[in-house]
Amino acid sequence: MKIIIVFILFILQTSFLFAQTKADLYKYQQVNEQQKSRPTKYHFGYPEKEHSTGQIFKDVGFAYALTWIFYPLTQPETVGQKGSWDKYQDNLGKIVFDHDAPFWNVMVHPISGSQLYLYYRANGYTKEQSFLLTTISSAMFEFTVEVYTEPASAPDLFNTPVLGSILGYGIENLSMYLLNTGNPLGRFLGHVINPSTFFWFYDGKMIITPDISKDGQAMFKLYMDF
């Protein structure tokens, strides 16, 4: 009991002796006092821009090339054991209702669709354009890549772009919120759920720099490199 009392007294005394003001305690940190938030060096967003027909074909073509790489990488057993060029010819042009488990139809395909949607959004397309391009990319995959193993699936043709774009819209909003908190964990998660923000084609990362205008007003300048 005496030891506990001595210990408590020791803690109290040292607290008074080495007491620091709030200014001392946080003197090496910058704080946005009004919003009680961290000041951020970057602002993340989705600037939208016009695209030429050639640029659209290039972006769709890049996504299409990736599907040829990712499909055998993510499903090696299916492609190795069940795929063949004879089957490719037989399946070309067919649409069926597949018997896949809900895990594929309601989870995997919408997640893939969401990442396609976010890829197009990172390239500066509007939400509507991104949805339409996701539909095209998904259809190209179903009709010309996955037919190596099975015919195109009607539920997948619908779920990938539609549920995928809805999920992508949610991920987009959440990732922008996380990235703009300035919180290291928030930025890490924001990039993880939206990997397109890591790549060179994402031009929504703007550097925030303080500046003084000609008439002496303080302001922030957003600098975007593209």
Binding site: H51, S52, T53, I56, F57, V60, L92, G93, T126, E128, Q129, F131, L132, L133, T135, I136, A139, M140, F143, V162, L163, S165, I166, Y169
Partner: peptide, 28 residues
């Protein structure tokens, strides 16, 4: 296959030509 390619090209061209921002709707 050819019909599908024509459909894809038409959709892609339509993205640059027609005003569609307020006409395409996604609901859930």
């Amino acid at each position: 296959m050819i019909k599908y390619l024509i459909f894809t090209i038409l959709i892609t061209f339509s993205l640059t030509v027609h005003p569609y921002e307020k006409t395409v709707l996604l609901r859930g």
